[in-house]
Structures are given as C-alpha cells and as structure tokens.
Design a protein around this nucleic acid. Structure first.
Lengths: 186, 186
DNA sequence: CGAGATATTAAGACTAGGTACTAATAGTAG
DNA sequence: CTACTATTAGTACCTAGTCTTAATATCTCG
C-alpha cells in the first residue's frame, strides 16, 4: 500500500477535502505511515488540524445559512386559501433570486410561486401541472414583495382537469399572469 | 451582575444557542462565576462541550449541503451551446425536486431548467422572459435525467423579441415542451 | 560502494478545552 | 445550629493536536 511522498500527499489532500472529520491517526493507518509523517505532510501542505478544520466547516455553515432556506421559501408563503376557489401567497425577492447584473428577478422564481400556488389551491391529494401559459408583464426587482393570487376557473371532474388563473402584483401593479392547466390525481 | 442559578442557566442556554463557539472560560467571565460552575450548569442542562458543539454544527452543514446547492443547480448544467442558435442542458432530478407523495418532479423545476436555458442561449448581455407557453407531456420521476434542448426560432432585432423553443426529454421520451418569448436588453 | 540528501519515525515537553471525581466553603432555610 | 444547596477549588486524565530535537531508513548520484 506504500506510495511515494508526492502521491501520498495528493491522496491526503483529497481524503481530507472529502472528509474533513478524519484524524491524523486514521490517516496514518490508511496510508501505512506513522502519525508523525502525516503531521509533516499536513505541515507541508498547510492543512490545519482536525479541530480547526471542523471549526471552519461549522463557521462556513453559518455563512451559508441564508442560502439554504430558499428552496422552501422559493414558493412563497401562503397567507390565505380557500380550496378549489382562491389562494394568495407572498414572495419577497431577495438577492439570490435576481440576476446580479440588473437586479431583476429570474423568471423561474416568479413561475415557481405561481405554479406552487396553483398546486396548493387544488383540493386533492395531489395535482400536476399539465400546461401553462404565462406572461411577465413587468420586471420584478430586488426587495420587491410579490403577491400572487390564484383563482380556480373551471373544474372538470370527468377529465380531472382544472384551470387555475394566477395573477401576481407588486404594489397593485401586475407583474405576472398565468393560466395553469392542472391535472388532479386521486 | 449576579443572578440566581435558574436565571443564569436560562441565559446560558440562550447564549450557547446563539453562539455555540463560546468557551466555558468566556462564559464564566460573562456570568461572573467560576469555570466549574459553568461546567456544572452544562452538565445539568446536558449541553455538550465546545468542541462537540462545533462538530455538531459542522455535521449539520454537511447534511444541508445537498439542500444549499439547488439554487444554482436548479437550472441544470449546460453541456452544449451555440449562441442565438441552440443549447442543451442536463438536469438530474433528486429528492429535493419531487413531491414526497408520488416522487414526481415539481413543475417549477422543469420550468426553471427550460427557462434558464432559454435565457442562456441568447447572445446578449441579458434576456428576460416576456411570455411563455408550456406543456408537461409526461411526469418526470425521481432520479431521472432530463435533457433540455433549446432552439432559437426567430429574432426580431427591432422589437428586441426572440422566440425560443425548448423541448425536454427523458430517455428520448418528451416530457416537456415550451415556447419562450424573450426580450433582450442591451 | 559510499556519502549526502531526503524521508520517515520516535520521543518529549507543552497546549486547549475539556471530563470525572473529591473536597472544601458559603449562604440560606427551617 | 443543622441540613441542604450552590459554588469554588484542585487533581488526575483525555484527545488531538503543536513544536522541537534526534535517530534511523531509503534513495540517489558520482
């Protein structure tokens, strides 16, 4: 299992990158060298000790905390709902939702809010979007609050099709409109 | 600054929750008690030592890592592009993209892939989606790989409008089609 | 083959940030 | 005054290291 120094150091770097929670002792066993050699290697490669590595990972997590939310947040927050009739959600446009260049919200976030509201308004185990026709009537900018209003237009119980209309506004100004053809499943 | 035991322990819990990186010594100074008292407190409250707390935070980050990527990942990976002509991206459907109940991908992820590909294919500083007409031709399931192909249909230099057609496939089977009316800005 | 360089291992002293345990002291209630 | 709780102190030990010095092992080149 013995490799030369260079090879071992490369593997060491990779191993630690992949799993920063590994101790020198574990590494020394893995590479069949002494603990001291591992320590010399880390010194040469400027890889900090286990506890520092863990700390670093932990600190990074705090930085990223804001970024780990939007997956749920992306769809906005439902503030009112009357199943099979209407629903309203709000979505605050933050830094991660906009193009950096011009601070305009990416279309798929607007769509996501509207689409998930259309899914939510349907009074059934689950609904899938079959078709949609959408229009972005004015760009939405950073820090604006988008209010999406969904309204069920028609329900066809036989085909399982439901048409939901969603209109989104920023300060009473329309920014998005869409018609979603939903398929309900029971 | 001296409080009674209960009060101090409550504050201790809060302090550590807020900043897990604080040592017993720092805490003992903050509450004007001995280090031993802090340790007794932690014992009673079953709060682990600093290094364990840091480790825990670090481990949690690893759990969340999958969840913090999708903001960028959501749009899929572009594998081929010919500006103002065609573009192809792949998107692997993972756990966080599907409805838990039936493992079917949420529509807005499919839309996001298609829409961002439509944005990317346009050879300009930036493009915005004005309108879109989309259709989900078959549900996409967990672990499926979606290949989206965008094709620019028409470019109107005067109005700044560009129409992009996107078709998505899983194993050569069409799952999504959409027509995006894009507005380009210079 | 042997000298010198490079690589590896070992050993010892010290560190932070603890645990676990024992013991002493302070303060307070009945 | 006694009993009890709360607090403090001190010791031994732990992990996962650092830093330093020193002894071997192995490799390379002339």
């Amino acid at each position: 299992m013995k490799r030369n120094k260079k090879e071992r150091q490369q593997l060491l770097t990779d191993t630690i990158k992949e799993n920063p929670f590994v101790t020198d002792e574990e590494l020394s066993e893995k590479f069949s060298v002494s603990v001291q050699t591992i320590r010399l290697d880390r010194l040469e490669l400027s890889i900090p000790e286990l506890r520092e590595r863990i700390k670093h990972v932990a600190e990074k997590r705090f930085e990223n905390e804001v970024r780990s939310l939007p997956i749920e947040e992306i769809i906005g927050e439902i503030i009112d709902i009357e199943l099979d009739k209407t629903a309203i959600s709000i979505f605050d446009v933050k830094g991660e939702h906009v193009f950096k260049r011009n601070q305009i919200a990416r279309g798929h976030h607007m769509f996501a809010q509207a689409n998930s509201l259309a899914v939510a308004v349907i009074n059934d185990e689950l609904a899938l979007t079959a078709k949609a026709s959408i229009q972005f009537t004015r760009p939405v900018k950073l820090n604006e609050r988008v209010i999406a209003k969904a309204r069920v237009l028609t329900i066809d119980n036989e085909s399982g099709r439901t048409i939901v209309e969603v209109n989104s506004f920023v300060n009473n100004e329309q920014v998005f409109k869409g018609e979603f053809d939903m398929f309900r499943k029971k």
